[in-house]
Computed example of a mutant assay.
Amino acid sequence: MSAIIFPGIGPTRFAELARFLVAHPVARRFVAEADRALGYSLVDRYREAETRGDQGAYPEPTRLAFLVSCLALAECAVAEQDEAPLACAGASFGGIPAAVQSGSLPFAEAVTLTVDWGRRVDAYFARRHRDIVTQSFARVPVDRLGEIRAELDARGEWNEVACHVDHDFHMLSVREETVEWLEKRLRAAGGLPLYVMRPPMHSALFQDLREEIETEIVAKAPFSDPGTVIVSDHDGSLVRTADGVRSLLLNAVTRTVRWPLVTETLKGLGVEKVHVAGHDALWGRVEVMTDAFKVVAVRPDTAMRPRRRSTIA
Protein backbone atom coordinates (compact mmCIF):
# COMPACT_ATOMS: atom_id res chain seq x y z
CA MET A 1 0.00 0.00 0.00
CA SER A 2 1.34 3.43 -0.93
CA ALA A 3 0.44 7.10 -0.48
CA ILE A 4 1.36 10.38 -2.15
CA ILE A 5 2.65 13.21 0.04
CA PHE A 6 3.04 16.83 -1.04
CA PRO A 7 5.56 18.81 1.01
CA GLY A 8 5.03 22.34 2.19
CA ILE A 9 6.52 24.89 -0.16
CA GLY A 10 10.18 25.55 0.44
CA PRO A 11 12.92 27.66 -1.13
CA THR A 12 13.49 26.67 -4.75
CA ARG A 13 15.66 28.31 -7.37
CA PHE A 14 14.61 28.59 -10.98
CA ALA A 15 17.55 26.44 -12.05
CA GLU A 16 16.33 23.57 -9.85
CA LEU A 17 12.99 23.31 -11.65
CA ALA A 18 13.49 24.91 -15.06
CA ARG A 19 14.76 21.88 -16.99
CA PHE A 20 11.98 19.70 -15.59
CA LEU A 21 9.26 22.26 -16.38
CA VAL A 22 10.33 22.80 -19.98
CA ALA A 23 11.64 19.35 -20.94
CA HIS A 24 9.64 16.66 -19.16
CA PRO A 25 6.49 15.76 -21.16
CA VAL A 26 4.23 15.50 -18.10
CA ALA A 27 5.49 18.79 -16.66
CA ARG A 28 5.12 20.52 -20.05
CA ARG A 29 1.47 19.47 -20.17
CA PHE A 30 0.80 20.95 -16.73
CA VAL A 31 2.72 24.13 -17.62
CA ALA A 32 0.67 24.56 -20.81
CA GLU A 33 -2.58 24.23 -18.87
CA ALA A 34 -1.32 26.66 -16.24
CA ASP A 35 -0.38 29.15 -18.97
CA ARG A 36 -3.91 28.97 -20.37
CA ALA A 37 -5.42 29.62 -16.93
CA LEU A 38 -2.99 32.47 -16.21
CA GLY A 39 -2.94 34.15 -19.60
CA TYR A 40 0.85 34.40 -19.50
CA SER A 41 3.93 32.15 -19.55
CA LEU A 42 4.58 30.71 -16.10
CA VAL A 43 8.16 29.75 -16.90
CA ASP A 44 8.95 33.25 -18.19
CA ARG A 45 7.46 34.88 -15.09
CA TYR A 46 9.30 32.44 -12.83
CA ARG A 47 12.61 33.30 -14.54
CA GLU A 48 11.91 37.04 -14.41
CA ALA A 49 10.97 36.94 -10.72
CA GLU A 50 14.29 35.36 -9.81
CA THR A 51 16.25 37.69 -12.08
CA ARG A 52 14.63 40.70 -10.38
CA GLY A 53 15.13 39.21 -6.94
CA ASP A 54 11.46 39.67 -6.04
CA GLN A 55 10.92 40.27 -2.36
CA GLY A 56 8.90 38.00 -0.13
CA ALA A 57 9.30 34.41 0.94
CA TYR A 58 7.57 32.85 -2.04
CA PRO A 59 6.66 35.14 -4.97
CA GLU A 60 3.63 34.18 -7.00
CA PRO A 61 5.55 32.46 -9.84
CA THR A 62 7.41 30.36 -7.27
CA ARG A 63 4.16 29.22 -5.69
CA LEU A 64 2.74 28.31 -9.09
CA ALA A 65 5.87 26.49 -10.24
CA PHE A 66 5.81 24.51 -7.01
CA LEU A 67 2.18 23.52 -7.60
CA VAL A 68 2.89 22.44 -11.18
CA SER A 69 6.03 20.49 -10.34
CA CYS A 70 4.40 18.68 -7.40
CA LEU A 71 1.49 17.47 -9.51
CA ALA A 72 3.64 16.51 -12.49
CA LEU A 73 5.96 14.52 -10.21
CA ALA A 74 2.99 12.84 -8.54
CA GLU A 75 1.71 11.73 -11.95
CA CYS A 76 5.16 10.30 -12.71
CA ALA A 77 5.15 8.39 -9.42
CA VAL A 78 1.66 6.97 -9.92
CA ALA A 79 2.50 5.89 -13.48
CA GLU A 80 5.35 3.74 -12.16
CA GLN A 81 3.19 1.86 -9.63
CA ASP A 82 1.17 -1.32 -9.98
CA GLU A 83 -1.69 0.14 -7.93
CA ALA A 84 -3.25 3.52 -7.27
CA PRO A 85 -2.19 5.32 -4.08
CA LEU A 86 -4.41 4.54 -1.12
CA ALA A 87 -4.36 8.11 0.20
CA CYS A 88 -2.70 11.48 -0.21
CA ALA A 89 -1.79 14.32 2.10
CA GLY A 90 -0.19 17.73 1.90
CA ALA A 91 1.72 19.72 4.47
CA SER A 92 0.62 23.36 4.69
CA PHE A 93 0.59 24.71 1.09
CA GLY A 94 0.83 21.09 -0.04
CA GLY A 95 -2.89 20.84 0.67
CA ILE A 96 -3.69 22.48 -2.68
CA PRO A 97 -1.86 19.90 -4.83
CA ALA A 98 -3.35 17.20 -2.58
CA ALA A 99 -6.83 18.52 -3.40
CA VAL A 100 -6.03 18.28 -7.13
CA GLN A 101 -4.41 14.85 -6.84
CA SER A 102 -7.43 13.52 -4.97
CA GLY A 103 -9.75 14.58 -7.79
CA SER A 104 -11.53 17.16 -5.65
CA LEU A 105 -10.30 20.32 -7.41
CA PRO A 106 -9.62 20.73 -11.15
CA PHE A 107 -6.06 21.79 -11.91
CA ALA A 108 -6.96 25.02 -13.77
CA GLU A 109 -9.10 26.14 -10.84
CA ALA A 110 -6.25 25.28 -8.47
CA VAL A 111 -3.99 27.60 -10.45
CA THR A 112 -6.49 30.45 -10.14
CA LEU A 113 -7.04 29.70 -6.46
CA THR A 114 -3.27 29.73 -5.81
CA VAL A 115 -2.92 33.14 -7.44
CA ASP A 116 -5.89 34.71 -5.65
CA TRP A 117 -5.03 33.11 -2.30
CA GLY A 118 -1.40 34.23 -2.45
CA ARG A 119 -2.31 37.80 -3.34
CA ARG A 120 -4.83 37.93 -0.53
CA VAL A 121 -2.26 36.66 1.98
CA ASP A 122 0.38 39.12 0.77
CA ALA A 123 -2.04 42.05 1.05
CA TYR A 124 -3.26 40.96 4.47
CA PHE A 125 0.17 40.70 6.04
CA ALA A 126 1.26 43.95 4.44
CA ARG A 127 -1.26 45.68 6.69
CA ARG A 128 -1.89 43.29 9.60
CA HIS A 129 0.27 41.42 12.16
CA ARG A 130 3.46 42.82 10.71
CA ASP A 131 5.21 42.19 14.02
CA ILE A 132 4.61 38.41 14.00
CA VAL A 133 7.07 35.87 12.59
CA THR A 134 7.41 32.09 12.75
CA GLN A 135 10.62 30.58 14.17
CA SER A 136 11.53 27.02 13.18
CA PHE A 137 13.81 24.87 15.33
CA ALA A 138 14.97 21.31 15.89
CA ARG A 139 16.19 19.19 18.84
CA VAL A 140 13.48 20.41 21.20
CA PRO A 141 11.10 17.64 22.35
CA VAL A 142 7.44 18.40 23.02
CA ASP A 143 7.83 18.50 26.81
CA ARG A 144 10.78 20.89 26.61
CA LEU A 145 8.84 23.11 24.22
CA GLY A 146 6.00 23.16 26.74
CA GLU A 147 8.40 24.51 29.36
CA ILE A 148 9.65 27.24 27.03
CA ARG A 149 6.12 28.24 26.09
CA ALA A 150 5.19 28.41 29.78
CA GLU A 151 8.07 30.82 30.29
CA LEU A 152 6.84 32.94 27.39
CA ASP A 153 3.35 32.96 28.89
CA ALA A 154 4.79 34.05 32.23
CA ARG A 155 6.57 36.91 30.48
CA GLY A 156 3.29 37.94 28.87
CA GLU A 157 4.63 37.06 25.41
CA TRP A 158 2.09 35.79 22.87
CA ASN A 159 3.10 32.54 21.20
CA GLU A 160 1.43 29.77 19.19
CA VAL A 161 2.69 26.54 17.64
CA ALA A 162 2.39 26.82 13.86
CA CYS A 163 3.77 23.37 12.97
CA HIS A 164 4.58 20.19 14.85
CA VAL A 165 6.78 18.53 12.24
CA ASP A 166 8.57 15.76 14.14
CA HIS A 167 9.18 14.52 17.67
CA ASP A 168 11.59 17.38 18.27
CA PHE A 169 11.02 19.72 15.31
CA HIS A 170 8.55 22.60 15.62
CA MET A 171 7.68 26.03 14.31
CA LEU A 172 6.55 28.64 16.82
CA SER A 173 4.97 31.99 16.02
CA VAL A 174 5.96 34.92 18.25
CA ARG A 175 6.28 38.69 18.17
CA GLU A 176 9.42 39.68 16.30
CA GLU A 177 10.81 41.38 19.37
CA THR A 178 10.73 37.99 21.14
CA VAL A 179 12.89 36.15 18.60
CA GLU A 180 16.27 36.99 20.15
CA TRP A 181 15.16 35.76 23.59
CA LEU A 182 13.57 32.66 22.06
CA GLU A 183 16.68 31.70 20.11
CA LYS A 184 18.86 32.01 23.21
CA ARG A 185 16.39 29.95 25.24
CA LEU A 186 16.22 27.27 22.56
CA ARG A 187 20.00 26.97 22.49
CA ALA A 188 20.11 26.76 26.27
CA ALA A 189 17.69 23.84 26.04
CA GLY A 190 19.93 22.06 23.52
CA GLY A 191 17.83 23.15 20.57
CA LEU A 192 18.88 24.35 17.15
CA PRO A 193 17.14 27.52 15.93
CA LEU A 194 16.82 27.46 12.16
CA TYR A 195 15.06 30.03 9.99
CA VAL A 196 12.54 32.78 10.71
CA MET A 197 9.57 32.98 8.35
CA ARG A 198 7.63 36.05 7.32
CA PRO A 199 4.69 36.13 6.85
CA PRO A 200 3.84 33.87 9.78
CA MET A 201 1.81 30.69 9.45
CA HIS A 202 -1.14 28.79 10.86
CA SER A 203 -2.55 30.80 13.76
CA ALA A 204 -6.02 31.29 15.22
CA LEU A 205 -5.09 34.96 15.26
CA PHE A 206 -5.68 35.04 11.50
CA GLN A 207 -9.36 34.12 11.60
CA ASP A 208 -10.36 37.26 9.71
CA LEU A 209 -7.98 36.28 6.88
CA ARG A 210 -9.59 32.83 6.77
CA GLU A 211 -13.01 34.47 6.45
CA GLU A 212 -11.82 36.73 3.63
CA ILE A 213 -10.41 33.78 1.70
CA GLU A 214 -13.51 31.68 2.32
CA THR A 215 -15.92 34.35 1.12
CA GLU A 216 -13.99 35.85 -1.76
CA ILE A 217 -11.89 32.97 -3.10
CA VAL A 218 -12.75 29.47 -1.94
CA ALA A 219 -16.51 29.93 -2.32
CA LYS A 220 -15.98 30.28 -6.08
CA ALA A 221 -13.95 27.10 -6.48
CA PRO A 222 -15.76 23.98 -7.84
CA PHE A 223 -14.84 21.33 -5.26
CA SER A 224 -16.19 17.79 -5.58
CA ASP A 225 -15.91 14.70 -3.40
CA PRO A 226 -12.35 13.35 -3.66
CA GLY A 227 -11.78 10.05 -5.41
CA THR A 228 -8.73 9.41 -3.22
CA VAL A 229 -9.04 10.05 0.48
CA ILE A 230 -7.00 12.96 1.90
CA VAL A 231 -5.41 12.79 5.34
CA SER A 232 -5.77 16.09 7.18
CA ASP A 233 -2.47 17.66 8.18
CA HIS A 234 -4.21 19.30 11.14
CA ASP A 235 -5.64 16.33 13.00
CA GLY A 236 -5.00 13.21 10.92
CA SER A 237 -8.67 12.75 10.06
CA LEU A 238 -9.81 11.31 6.73
CA VAL A 239 -11.32 13.84 4.33
CA ARG A 240 -13.86 12.29 1.96
CA THR A 241 -16.22 15.11 0.93
CA ALA A 242 -16.08 18.31 -1.09
CA ASP A 243 -16.97 20.38 1.98
CA GLY A 244 -14.26 18.56 3.91
CA VAL A 245 -11.61 19.46 1.34
CA ARG A 246 -12.78 23.06 1.28
CA SER A 247 -12.51 23.25 5.08
CA LEU A 248 -9.13 21.52 5.05
CA LEU A 249 -7.63 24.20 2.83
CA LEU A 250 -9.20 27.04 4.79
CA ASN A 251 -8.05 25.58 8.08
CA ALA A 252 -4.46 25.94 6.87
CA VAL A 253 -4.81 29.63 7.72
CA THR A 254 -5.72 29.14 11.36
CA ARG A 255 -4.84 25.62 12.53
CA THR A 256 -1.54 24.05 13.55
CA VAL A 257 0.01 21.53 11.16
CA ARG A 258 0.48 18.28 13.11
CA TRP A 259 2.53 16.01 10.86
CA PRO A 260 2.94 13.10 13.31
CA LEU A 261 -0.85 12.65 13.22
CA VAL A 262 -0.68 12.24 9.43
CA THR A 263 1.86 9.45 9.78
CA GLU A 264 -0.22 7.69 12.44
CA THR A 265 -3.28 7.72 10.19
CA LEU A 266 -1.33 6.45 7.19
CA LYS A 267 0.09 3.61 9.25
CA GLY A 268 -3.41 2.77 10.43
CA LEU A 269 -4.54 2.54 6.80
CA GLY A 270 -1.81 0.00 6.09
CA VAL A 271 0.45 2.32 4.07
CA GLU A 272 4.00 1.03 3.82
CA LYS A 273 5.50 3.24 1.09
CA VAL A 274 5.18 7.00 0.73
CA HIS A 275 6.11 8.94 -2.39
CA VAL A 276 7.03 12.54 -1.61
CA ALA A 277 6.22 14.46 -4.81
CA GLY A 278 8.06 17.76 -4.98
CA HIS A 279 11.14 19.65 -3.91
CA ASP A 280 11.46 18.69 -0.24
CA ALA A 281 14.11 19.26 2.41
CA LEU A 282 11.92 18.54 5.42
CA TRP A 283 8.55 16.75 5.44
CA GLY A 284 9.66 13.46 3.93
CA ARG A 285 12.95 13.37 5.81
CA VAL A 286 11.91 13.58 9.45
CA GLU A 287 11.95 10.52 11.71
CA VAL A 288 8.18 10.16 11.98
CA MET A 289 8.25 9.48 8.24
CA THR A 290 11.47 7.53 7.77
CA ASP A 291 10.85 5.27 10.80
CA ALA A 292 7.35 4.37 9.63
CA PHE A 293 7.59 4.06 5.84
CA LYS A 294 9.78 3.43 2.87
CA VAL A 295 10.04 7.04 1.75
CA VAL A 296 10.66 7.66 -1.95
CA ALA A 297 11.65 11.19 -2.96
CA VAL A 298 10.18 11.98 -6.38
CA ARG A 299 12.20 14.97 -7.49
CA PRO A 300 12.75 16.78 -10.78
CA ASP A 301 16.24 15.31 -11.15
CA THR A 302 15.03 11.72 -10.63
CA ALA A 303 12.10 12.22 -13.00
CA MET A 304 14.46 13.44 -15.73
CA ARG A 305 16.57 10.28 -15.66
CA PRO A 306 15.90 7.52 -18.20
CA ARG A 307 12.73 5.68 -17.20
CA ARG A 308 13.59 2.85 -14.92
CA ARG A 309 11.34 1.62 -12.16
CA SER A 310 14.20 1.87 -9.68
CA THR A 311 14.32 5.68 -10.01
CA ILE A 312 10.88 6.06 -8.41
CA ALA A 313 9.64 2.73 -7.08
Rank of each mutant, 00 (worst) to 15 (best):
G278I: 00
V140C: 13
A89P: 11
A3T: 12
S203P: 13
T256V: 00
M197S: 15
I9W: 13
H164Y: 01
A57S: 09
S224A: 13
D143F: 02
W158D: 12
R128M: 04
L205Y: 12
G190K: 03
D54G: 05
A89C: 10
V179T: 01
D54N: 13
A154D: 04
D291C: 06
D35G: 08
A77V: 05
V174T: 12
Q207I: 10
Q81W: 10
R299V: 15
P306Q: 10
M171Y: 01
V298N: 03
E211N: 04
D235K: 00
L172T: 02
A138T: 15
D280Q: 07
L192R: 15
P59F: 11
A77K: 02
M197P: 03
S203R: 14
T241K: 02
G146P: 10
L38Q: 11
R198E: 12
G90R: 01
D291P: 13
I312G: 14
D168R: 06
I148M: 04
S92W: 02
L248I: 00
V111T: 02
G146L: 04
R307W: 12
K184W: 12
G90N: 07
A34T: 03
L105T: 05
L209M: 03
W117C: 05
M289A: 00
H170L: 11
L67T: 07
R285I: 13
E50C: 02
L282G: 12
R127L: 07
A126W: 07
P106L: 10
G53I: 03
S247V: 14
L145G: 05
G118E: 07
V296M: 14
W158T: 03
A108S: 04
E177A: 13
V111L: 08
S224G: 14
V239E: 11
A27Y: 07
L113A: 06
D35K: 09
F6C: 05
F14C: 12
D35F: 08
